[in-house]
Design a protein around this nucleic acid. Structure first.
Lengths: 110, 110
DNA sequence: AATACCGGTATCTTTTAGTATACCGTAAAA
DNA sequence: TTTTACGGTATACTAAAAGATACCGGTATT
């Protein structure tokens, strides 16, 4: 197999799935594409998520530099979660995912 | 919020994650982007997968019309798994995922 | 005739992800 | 001053995914 023709490494795909996959991460990122949100705001928007899961996923996304929690300095000011610049770079990808998903639904149902 | 500015529905993203997510599905699809493969060939390429998991995921992908198992007619001819046309339509998406993943790795490690 | 590969299935155990629910300190609103 | 919202933490549980391992009938190979 020539290098030019070489295809995706499994790991490459898996790395990304590990990040945006799972029950909630894609949804969290997608809803933050909208705007920065506060903890309880997220909890309301992501119907059914428990605080434990939410905080766990947010921390994971923070660690992966996709989401920021601001201000880092303590107290007095309300805390907002937002996409980082890096997180925003996912937006077109998520957009394409959504488009494909809608097409897919038609094929499966139609 | 104007409709034009309306953002992704959580469900849209989740639907797709449900399909390409999970420990192996992305990898299976990615490796089938390469070429049609036989069961044991897939098993070798997807290092560490058990036959139980492989057959389960293949059936799932078949049900979702992303992968075909041919020939359907029984026996005598070797069985190949391949992407369907619909499955192939995932290829650009997977490509974009891979690109983003590589960029992401640099950011996390660098 | 024996061995090995193919395309799986069956059973059991472990791991992981997610759920349920209660609670806590702080701050602002009523 | 009692209540409510915020931003979580703690503990315990459950269900789903995945792994380990053995096995099986059919075909091809030696």
């Amino acid at each position: 197999m020539k290098n030019k023709e070489k295809h995706f490494q499994n790991r490459d795909v898996q790395d990304v799935i590990d990040i945006i996959g799972g029950r909630w991460r894609g949804a969290i990122l997608a809803t933050l594409c909208d705007k920065a949100k506060r903890f309880n705001e997220l909890k309301r928007d992501l119907t059914g998520i428990t605080p434990r899961t939410l905080i766990k996923e947010l921390k994971f996304l923070e660690m992966n530099k996709l989401v920021s929690r601001e201000p880092e300095t303590d107290s007095a000011v309300p805390i907002f979660y937002n996409l980082t610049k890096h997180g925003k770079s996912l937006e077109p990808l998520i957009g394409q995912i959504v488009v494909w998903g809608q097409k897919h639904r038609k094929i499966i149902l139609g």
